[in-house]
Every structure is written in C-alpha cells, then in structure tokens.
Amino acid sequence: MIEISHLSKNFPGEEGEVPALRDVSLTIPDGDVYGIIGMSGAGKSTLVRCINGLERPTAGTNVVDGCDVSLLRGRALRAYRRQVSMIFQGFHLLMQKNCLQNVCFPLRLAGLDRRAAIERGMELLDTVGLADKAHVYPAQLSGGQQQRVAIARAIATEPKILLCDEATSALDPTTASSILRLIREIQEKHNITVIIITHRMSDVEHICRHVAILDGGAVAEEGEVAEIFSRPRSDAARRLVFPQGEVVLPPLADTDARYIRVVFNGVSATSAPLIARMVKERDIVASIAAADTRSIGDRVYGSMILCVGDGRLAASAVEYLNAHPEVHAEEVTARV
C-alpha cells in the first residue's frame, strides 16, 4: 500500500522556491491500477519520482508498505528501488546493448549470474512477445517494441510496484493501447500495483480503476474512474473530461423549451437507446443539444444535454430517466 500524506515538493527557482507538489495526499491500495492524470507541468513526474525515492519531498511523508521512503538512504534506498520499477516516455533503453542485455541489466544488478540472467531474460522477452529480437539492438526496433523491452526489463526483478511515467505518450494510439493491454495483463498475472501517469484520458479509461487528477501540483479530484469521468466536479477534471471546453448552450429560443442534463454513469451499452425509448413511450419530443459520452468496457459514461421542446414535459422526462439506476438527469439552465 502506498500512503502519501501532505506531500509537498519545492524546486529552487530564479526567484525563490517554486512549488511542484502542494499538500498531496493519496492512498493507493495493493494491486490497484491507479491513474494520475494532469496537464503538462502539473507535477505528475515529480510525484512518481517521490514514490520511488528519486526525489526527496520538501514536506510530508510517503509511506510504502509501512516504510517511509524519504528516510531511506544509500543501500536501503537502492534495495527499495528494486521493488519499484519504472517505465518512461522515452523508453531509456541502453542503445549500445541488445534487447537481451537490456533485460539482463536489472537481473545482474540483483546479483544473478550471467547464465541465470540470460535464461530469465529470454523468458521475459517471450512474455512481451519479442523473443525473436533478443540479439537485436534497440535502434532497430519500433517505439512500441522498445517500450515492450523496457517493460520486460522493468518487471525482470518482480517488483511490487510498476510506475509508468507517460509510458504511452510517445506512441500512436493503437500501439499505446497494446502497451496498456500488456501492462494490464502483467498486472493481473502478478497482482502488482501499477501507477499510470498520463495526460491522456484514454489511457486512464483503458485500464485504471482509480484516478487522481493533479492540477498545479495539487490533487483536484480523486476517486473511481467511472465516477470522476461521468461527473467531474473540479475545474481541472472538467477540462480533462471535456477537452474541447465546457459545453456552452445557446440561450433557448423558445421560452417553453428546457434543457436536461443526462449523466450516464455506466449504463450498459444494450440499454443505450434509452432516449429513443423515452421519446416513444412518453411521447416527449427531445433533441440532443450536446453529447460527450464514451464507452469503458461495455458501459457508457459521460453526459448529454437534451433539449425538450415542451417545458411542461421536462419533469416527466427527468423522472423517466432517473428511474434508470445508472442515469442521473436534471434540468439545467443554459450554462452547463
């Protein structure tokens, strides 16, 4: 379990200290897939670097499995870091070493002899689907393949925690999701704790259970992915969930018309024609003024703005929609 409490980190700047993290408190249970999402410069990398002790916090504590990381020094710190692996946006493979040698690097650090390291290294390359590239140099691999080698290397010493700092940000969306799938597979197989740092919503949607939204070094919002994505409360979360900007609805031309905001909080995709059924069953004429929904697994999350022509029916529509357990509907004014 990772227990971060009141963590702050300042960097010395041109004019005094610059805060990168402000009073961050998070608890990440064992075996969780935890997303940390935020705009560039939000302090995400600084936070993970604090978790594996590459950075020392200015204030606060970071306790991993009962041990305060910021108190560790020298040998003890290095031993701790072997439990916490990291993969990076830039892969950071050794370019003068072949894939097998790259994967063997942490094994040799952990004290395995050459033969044992090679044997285990080959197994690991097989796990990530690159057994045939063992003797190829990283420069000859694609970005996705390089990241796979980096993943094999990261899990070589069977760490308890895997930190992924923008691990898919340099990759195209298809490759990115295959890497995320691989991370998920490894997570499930070894039941390790995975922390995914990203600035992309889609990464978190793919595999995370919990997410923290970091904004200006502080946690803006934290909780279950589905909950936060369907009903973002903080401005930072809204900016991420609605990257095109908030939905600003035109003032209603017809004084009778009403807007209804419908939030889908994990409606199963098969009950999706909900709006159509409402139109049919209740005879309410409604149009979709704005929609931003997404599917996570086989469930639909997000929100939609309906415009109901006859205001007297708005209450009926809200009641109809709210009858569905995973839907929340409410009447709203023009600004949503």
């Binding site: 710190l77 031993a79 701790y80 870091r81 692996s85």
Partner: peptide
Amino acid sequence: GQIEMAQSMGAS
C-alpha cells in the same frame, strides 16, 4: 534519462 533509469533500478 538513462542514468535515471539505472537509478530507478537501484543501481549504485
């Protein structure tokens, strides 16, 4: 980045 990678693996 490569040095950070090695540090993150607990290399002395």
